[in-house]
């Protein structure tokens, strides 16, 4: 489903979606055009929890945004000394 269609059907709320079609804008930005709707989420607290527990390829977004634009970055790499190391 196009994002514009999701916005029309479910205005001004959070939706859990699966990414279907996207393209890079430069090196560090992803523009997602098509998604599969999993479900709507009315509670912003639930949306916050589901955002950080969504399975791979899924994410939570608010339909007030005319486009899905996501910044890409690398995960933090903290290399702590092991507790078994001297």
């Amino acid at each position: 489903m196009l994002w514009s269609e999701v916005r029309e059907l479910f205005p001004n709320q959070y939706v859990l979606v699966k990414e279907l079609k996207s393209h890079y804008v430069g090196e560090h930005t992803l523009h997602i055009e098509e998604v599969a709707l999993v479900r709507t989420i009315s509670d912003p607290h639930q949306a916050w929890i589901e955002l950080f527990s969504a399975p791979a390829g899924h994410f939570v977004y608010h339909t007030s945004h005319p486009e899905i634009v996501i910044e890409l970055k690398t995960k933090p790499m903290v290399r702590r000394r092991s507790i078994h190391e001297n």
Partner: peptide, 23 residues
Amino acid sequence: FQRYEPDDQLIFMHGLGGSEAAV
């Protein structure tokens, strides 16, 4: 921080173990 705010900018962080959301 208990609510997802509409103005939060979504970020995907890539690395070992795949992609994770950040805000």
